[in-house]
Amino acid sequence: MTYQFEFSSLLPYWREFLDGVWLTLQLSAISTVLGFTGGALCAIARADGPPWLKRVVGAYVEVIRNTPLLVQVFLVYFGIAVLGIRVDANLAAVLALVVNVVAYTCEIMRAGIESVHKAQVEAAECLGLNRRQTYWHVILRPAIERVYPALVSQYVLLMLASSITSQISAEELTAVANRIQSDTFRSFETYIVVGLLYLALSFVVRWAFWGFGMLVFTRRRKLGTAL
């Protein structure tokens, strides 16, 4: 084998790599926040909504979980275009990612909500808490705490999966890589660098979630239970 690795020709592109990292982080952060909010609401609707709403949310979750993100991204991007609306690729990317991650969050949160014992709800009712207060203080908070590790894994996967939006040329890290490798003809090296950047990102994101969890879930912090 005579291949000569040559990373130095990538050096001039360091700014572009960083821009890609930054946009990947932004895409993931926005999708995570919106996805979590939407997913939690869907989970509540599915646990406690009127029958028709339960069915609608259930069908939505099944459809999303049983079709590829890539196809969802294509549908959103090309679909919006054919409707005659001009949308920035980054916005279409966020939209598709949110639609996707809401379904996964809903499924995880549902498991968390189901794990909260009925007696807890009864106790809250007997203390005079209304439905909203009961939901927030007695159901959602412990449910989130319980499924937090599963949520974190899901959101790390989301960050990695955001690479798929490069296929509609959202300007995130993978799209940047695609451009740089066609400029430099150093494809293998480019993707090694980008692979390592993603690896680093996944550690950073995990670590950030861990820190956030320690901050928010005081019980876990105090009792030293692993998150």
Binding site: S163, S187, Y198
Partner: peptide
């Protein structure tokens, strides 16, 4: 688990080309 599948596929594709 820490790298996107997309990047993995690119690496293999270009890696095979190199050898």
């Amino acid at each position: 688990q820490g790298t996107p599948l997309l990047i993995l596929l690119f690496l293999i594709y270009f890696g095979l080309a190199i050898i």
